[in-house]
C-alpha cells in the first residue's frame, strides 16, 4: 500500500452508509483510468459495501485498512 499513492482522498468519516460509497462512485465517475482513489469511512457497512462495489464494477481493490478509528478503502480505476 505504502508505494501506491492515492491520486484522490475522500474523507467521508462521520458520514453514514451509503454516503461514503456514493462519494467513492462519484469520484470514480469523475476520475480517469489509472487513478487511485482512497476513501476514509468510520461506517462499518462501507467496509463491506465498498469492496463489493469495486469488484462488481471491474476495478481493482488495492486494500482495506483499519486505521485509528476508521477504515481506509483504496481502489484503482482500471476502466
Amino acid at each position: 500500500m505504502e508505494d501506491v499513492k492515492p491520486t484522490k482522498v475522500i474523507d467521508a468519516r462521520g458520514s453514514y452508509c451509503p454516503g461514503p460509497l456514493m462519494e467513492l462512485i462519484k469520484a470514480y465517475k469523475q476520475g480517469k483510468v489509472g487513478d487511485v482513489i482512497s476513501v476514509y469511512s468510520s461506517d462499518e457497512g462501507t467496509r463491506k459495501d465498498a469492496p463489493a462495489w469495486i469488484q462488481k464494477s471491474g476495478n481493482e481493490l488495492v486494500g482495506v485498512y483499519t486505521r485509528d478509528g476508521y477504515y481506509e478503502i483504496v481502489m484503482k480505476k482500471v476502466k
Binding site: C17, P18, L21, M22, I25, G45, K48, D49, A52, K56
Partner: peptide, 10 residues
C-alpha cells in the same frame, strides 16, 4: 438499485 441490496437500510 445502486447498493448491494434492495434498500438503504441493511
Amino acid at each position: 438499485y445502486p447498493l448491494n441490496r434492495v434498500f438503504t437500510i441493511p
